[in-house]
Design a protein around this nucleic acid. Structure first.
Lengths: 153, 153
DNA sequence: GCATAATCCTACTTCTTCGATAGGAATAAT
DNA sequence: ATTATTCCTATCGAAGAAGTAGGATTATGC
């Protein structure tokens, strides 16, 4: 199990946060790509995912672009990531509640569920507006300021 | 960002838990593979990783096999996963503390750090003995029994 | 000594996914 | 018309994941 932020996920969140801070204006993919140093064409594909998920609205034609479909204060990072990368957690491609083990590992699914819940408690509670402003919820902030949170392991 | 348990990680933890429940006996890879229905040769490679990481000791020759190098009550699931899959969390292959963003996403690293801390708080606190017995620490148990922890999203 | 059962080592295959690019069609503003 | 955009399809190369193959090495028990 590793928690990897893919390029897709990273780009999607960065673009979404940029849209949040420009909200409710519409911003072109080119501008987003320049601001955040993202590959333009790749970003287009990512934004298309967000649009299909209903998180972002697009406007075609000159002076078109993208804007958030809902308020930055209600759109969570978790929603963005699910839209581009699928479910937040999985075990060998399956959902944690679907795996079953025999013998000594019988209780292992409990642990996978716990990890997923821990991740959700962060990603589904933090909104784009909070990331843009840097004002994370107290419970999340506490994780960041814990003594060894910045230590590699 | 998605928290994916790879086959390597899954197999490693299952084998380690099985070793924990047999501790301090040594168990052959073949037996482990049979008990947990794992591909034998692949499991060998995984156990080799655990050995190189010093988490498991091996005994060669007939009647040989593997055993935990330390007590099941001190070996954590996090340690097992790191041994086979590398760091628990990453952003586009880099460590969360190494990425930097400009513009609206400037505070984003805080969020990645928080997610990693949340994951560590589970995986580095749960030991193989606890998984084998099903007696997870209270804080982790609470995550599992939360109302919608078993709901897909 | 010899058969047997294990770990250990190297290499290989196959498949999928990830990240990214290319080219152009449709759309709308000026 | 021109220009700036989204949108669609197709393609590409590299890397990794999952698993297999074959045999060399090591120890046990007869």
């Amino acid at each position: 199990m590793t928690m990897q932020v893919s390029a897709r996920g990273d780009y999607a969140v960065r673009a979404a946060v940029a849209l949040a801070s420009a909200h409710p204006d519409t911003v072109s993919a080119q501008t987003l790509a320049d601001e955040q140093s993202l590959p333009h064409k790749f970003l287009e594909a990512v934004l298309a995912d967000l649009r299909r998920a209903g998180l972002v609205r697009s406007v075609r034609g000159a002076d078109g672009g993208y804007r958030l479909a809902h308020s930055p204060t209600t759109t969570t990072v978790g929603a963005i990531l699910r839209a581009v990368d699928g479910p937040l957690a999985g075990v060998r491609g399956q959902r944690p509640e679907d795996v079953t083990y025999g013998g000594a590992a019988a209780h292992l699914p409990d642990l996978w569920i716990a990890v997923r819940a821990a991740v959700r408690n962060v990603l589904d509670e933090v909104t784009l507006a909070q990331v843009a402003s840097g004002k994370l919820p107290a419970r999340v902030r506490r994780l960041v300021t814990a003594p060894d949170a910045w230590e590699p392991r």
